[in-house]
Structures are given as C-alpha cells and as structure tokens.
Design a protein around this nucleic acid. Sequence first.
DNA 1: ACCTCCAGTGGAAGCGCTTACAGTTTCCGT
DNA 2: ACGGAAACTGTAAGCGCTTCCACTGGAGGT
Lengths: 337, 337
Amino acid sequence: MATGKPATIYDVAARANLSIATVSRVLQGTGPVSEKARVKVGQAAAELNYVPLRAARSLAVQRHEAHGLVLPDLSGPFYGDLLMGYERWAGEHGQSVVLTVTQGNADPRRSVRDLAGRVDGIVVHGNALDLPTIQELRKAGVALVLVAHPPVTGCDSVRTESASSSERLTTRLLDTGRKNLVFVGDPISSYDVSERYAGFAKAHESRGSAVPEPLCVPLTEESGKRVAKEILATGNRPGGLVCANDELALAALTTLRAGGIAVPEDVVVTGWDDVMAARYVSPGLTTVRQPMAELGQLAAQRLHERVTGERTRARNDVLATEIVLRDSCGTSGAMQQ
Amino acid sequence: MATGKPATIYDVAARANLSIATVSRVLQGTGPVSEKARVKVGQAAAELNYVPLRAARSLAVQRHEAHGLVLPDLSGPFYGDLLMGYERWAGEHGQSVVLTVTQGNADPRRSVRDLAGRVDGIVVHGNALDLPTIQELRKAGVALVLVAHPPVTGCDSVRTESASSSERLTTRLLDTGRKNLVFVGDPISSYDVSERYAGFAKAHESRGSAVPEPLCVPLTEESGKRVAKEILATGNRPGGLVCANDELALAALTTLRAGGIAVPEDVVVTGWDDVMAARYVSPGLTTVRQPMAELGQLAAQRLHERVTGERTRARNDVLATEIVLRDSCGTSGAMQQ
DNA sequence: ACCTCCAGTGGAAGCGCTTACAGTTTCCGT
DNA sequence: ACGGAAACTGTAAGCGCTTCCACTGGAGGT
C-alpha cells in the first residue's frame, strides 16, 4: 500500500477487472460507462492511491494543459499580484502554470526553450526576454502573449496604460505651479518606463515648455537615495521629482526630508505602482495604481484563447490605470480624471 | 518553415540522414557520437526549429525534472521572495517549477493531485493545505517537503525560527518597563503564528507574569485598524502590541497615532516580516526579518535530494531570523541578540 | 594476415495514457 | 420471439522520446 512503483492505469484495471480503456473513460468522464464500472474503478483507484501520469496523457492527447509564464523578477508586490491573477485564472480553467524567472538566470534562452517543450503556450513579461529570443519562440510556433511589451506581429499583448496617466499627472504638477520637474528613471530600461517618460514629455510639450531630459538611473531605492543626496549636496533644487516607480520615489522622498527639504512644499514627489509603503510614508506618496491581478488574468485568458484556437487574430489590450493622489504632490484635492 | 505540425525527433533524424537514436544521443549528450553527426543534427534541429517534447522524454525516463510548489497566496513580498529563492535554485539545477496557489482555489485537493502527476515531488507551504491532504499525498508516494509546517513523519520540513525571537523581543519590551502587552493575531491560523505566541507566552512565564490571552484576529491591515480603533474607543490602553505580522502592526500603529496616542511613548508596537513599509512608516517599525529567499532555496534543495534519492532520512531545518529594532518599540539602542 | 576491441550507429521495445474501432450485451418496439 | 439500436466494454494502435542490444568498420596488437 505504501511504496513500490506507483500504480498505473493497468494496475487499476486489473484490480477492477476491467480494461484500461474503461478505466480511462471513467477517470476522464468520457464515453458511456456503467454505474458498476464507475464504482469499481473508483474503489480500485482509491485503494491503489492511483495518480495518473500527466506526461503519458499529454503525449497521447498532444496537449499539456499547462501555461508557461516568464517573469523578470519576483521581488516587490508587483509581479506577485500579476502571478496571483494569472494563477487564479489558470487554475479555474484547469491549466497548470510553469514559472520561469530570468533575473539571475545564467541562460534564459535555454530555459525558455525547455519551457516551450512542456507547455501549450507562453506568456512573457517584456522585461524578461530580449526581442531575438521572443522572435525565436514565435518561429518555433509557440503560442505567445506579451505583457508590458510593444506589440509584435503575430503575438497577443496586454499592458497597462502609462503614457496618458503620466501626462495627466505631470500636467497637474505643472498646473499647480511647479517648475523644473525631473523625470527619474531610465526610459530605456523598459517599455513601461519609456511610456511614462513619453507622457511626462507630452505634458511639457502641450504647454510649450522645454522637455527636460530624463535622469537615467536604475529603478531602485538605492538610486532614489542617491538622487536625493545629489540634490541636497548641490543645492540645485528641482520643483518636483516624477519617479518611474515607488521605490525610487519613497527613497528620494525620505532622503530629501531627512536633509531638511520639505515635501511637498519645496519639492513634490510622485511614484508609480502604489506599493503598500506609499500609504504609510508621510507625506503619503502620490502614485499610479495598475491593475496587476487583472493584467495577469487577462494574459492567461488571451493565451488560452490562442491555444485552443478559439481566436486567431492577434489582440492588443490596454488596461486603465488610476492616479492615486496623496500629499506628496501638494494639494491632493479633487481632480477630474 | 513556419507552422504545420511541430517537428519531431523523426523529422530531425530524416533531415540529418541519421537514426533517431543518434539524434537523441547528440541532443542529450549521452553516448558516443562523431563530430560529423553532431554538426548535422545541430543544423537539422536549428532549421526545423525543433523543440523536444518534454512529455515524451518524461514518459521514457520516468522523471519529470520538475518540482511542484504549493503556496497559500502570493500577495505581499513574503511569498514572492520565497518563490524567487526557490525558482533560482531550481533553475540552476535544471528543474522546472509548477506553481499552485490554494487561496481562492475551489478544489485544492484536486489541483494538488493533478500537480502530483506532473512533477517529481512537491513543496507545500503549511498554510496552503490541510493535514489530511498532505497525508494523502504521502500515501501516494509523493516526495514531500513542508515549509512552515510542524514536522510530519516521512516528510522533510524547513521553517524559520519563531518562538525564540518572539521571546527575546517580548522580553525586551518587558525589560523596558512595558506592562499589559497584547499579542495580536490568531495563533490557530498558522504554525508560525502559534510559535510567535508561544515565545510571547514564554517571555511572560519566565518572569512569573501572567500570560495574556492572544487577541485572535486575521492578519490583515483591516484588523489592525480595528484593533487600534477599539483601543481608542475604550480608552483601555495596553502598554504594547506584539503583532503577528507587519500588516497588522502598520495599520495599528498609524491608526493609534492618528487617534492621538503616541508611539512608542504611550504604546509600543512590533510586527513580523520586515516588509518595505516597515522602514518608511514613522516611527520605524520594529519587526523580525525572515530569510525567505534562503528558505525557498533550501526547500528546493531538500526536495531535490529526496527526488534523486541522495538522501532518505527526513530532515527538519530551522533558519535563523533577525530582530530589526526601530523606533516603534521605544529605545532601539543596541541589544545583544 | 588475423583477431580483438571499440567508437559509432541503427533497430526496436517500451514508458502510461487516449481513442478509433470492433465486439458484446441489453433493452426496446413490434 | 425477433431485429436492431443503444449501451457498454475490450483490443490495439499510436503519441515522441530514451535506451538496450546488435551490428559495422576501422585501428591497433600479434
């Protein structure tokens, strides 16, 4: 009862005095089976602790009933929520999720190729893989959905709206009289960030102001701190920091205050993502919230449509974001979005 | 070149004018092959965009080269870091990770059984599955590693130390003259929390004080807020709140301050997990940091040892935690740990 | 010149499951 | 009572890969 080789469908069939075909039919609920057979198989399977080998089924039905998910990273609540949304949808639709993280992966290309061999399709986050690798997957005929990545021919894509909310946010800051805004974060580093900078730039252009160059730094607390220290050291004080994410913004905000600069009175600060700390820092951090769980869920759904062939035309979805006004940007009163 | 049925090992063999046996040997690097064959196979595979079907290999070698990971949830940085550590180790050792989240899963039992059919072994977080389900897996002969779960015969387990750090932390609060400490969080809800309460209790016993009953609430910001409001409303003010996690602590801390109670002067507050917000709230939140990434990595390693059979005796590992002193507990000066 | 050895290769069996097809029973309507 | 459909069950052929075994031919020893 305990160990030995795990039971196969043959063992179950033998124990139930039936053929493996009938056992399969009972277990999968396909085809007609007598009540008696159903019961006998159920008993036998339970007694033997039978667990069907999915590899054998996959081979036979030419389908894995699994999705691959390729993410750059998992630190922060950001990807966790995405993954959560994904997993949930997948689970509800009987799909397993095989995860691959590229951050710190010696050979992502290889990992992803291997992944392709065990799933029906793959969802790739834009920051996780370079374009050549993505193209390679496409050529291999893998069903592909891109997240936070500019559309690629033949692939679906899902992302959150960035440029427009960034523009609105920036405009608001300019409207309240802030001059010399600085965009903090490297637009090259990811598609999302480039969009955020684009919105920032557009807001300046719309009112005929010169567009400030971005301050190209990594999106980490460390850089946020460094940027703030730089400001404190030079005394060259901008009117506001539009940061590409909350880590940058939080670190900058607290470092500035520690250095005697008042936020929002002297300098306003905004972030992106609405992490938990944005609510707890004081002043509260103005930021932009993205529907990460929905994004994940939508990605799963789009991939599934592709895999099942219920849709063949590519789709590019954009999910709305929400500006969260808090005290770090000065007046956080009503603003028509 | 584009689509049609995906290429199989037969296609590659035909194109390279070799047998599938040789192709397999080249691709897997097993057995002797001539340089010429190696090159021909490489070319053919590349031209056909050949991706080996893992299901077929799994079936043949009787091994999935994949781990199952069952987590209760993914919100917060907590499980993300665990998962990250896990994924990293697994990736480095050629193991895929199949993820299952039980939170909001209609039939976790079924999901996990299905999972068992596609991996070589499973790591289960204690809060994700109930004991009967775990036992059932064991009976089915699944290699099992438990995370943050009391040891079960025949399974490995890994967890972080809780009781002792909780005791030290509580003792410190008592030493600084705080009376009427309250433990916030339900010890029943998880093994970790029960240990934290046990340490809290032990600290009281050691000095002959009565052990306060725990305040049994869910580990959410919402409950933290409610607890604080209750205190504000009744005026029945404890000397300190020892919270089972940071969400509780952060919400309680800010709600108390908003209500005019000084932290740490009137009431001290501590949490658990050291989330990012703990550094940004003021006063900084005293908390306990757990090495989540290492925990994940260790779990992966233990499971792999089990799967490969390189170890058969069960192991129970406990990882050290670190008390992080910040202002919310009053004097955050040096403390010999 | 012969035999031995081995690097290199191919043939074929088999991993555990699904499913088309064919066979057997059962249960009607007449 | 009988024909035939419907309900059920079994047989066997794969799915794509690995690997045991047998086979070939050339290198090296005598």
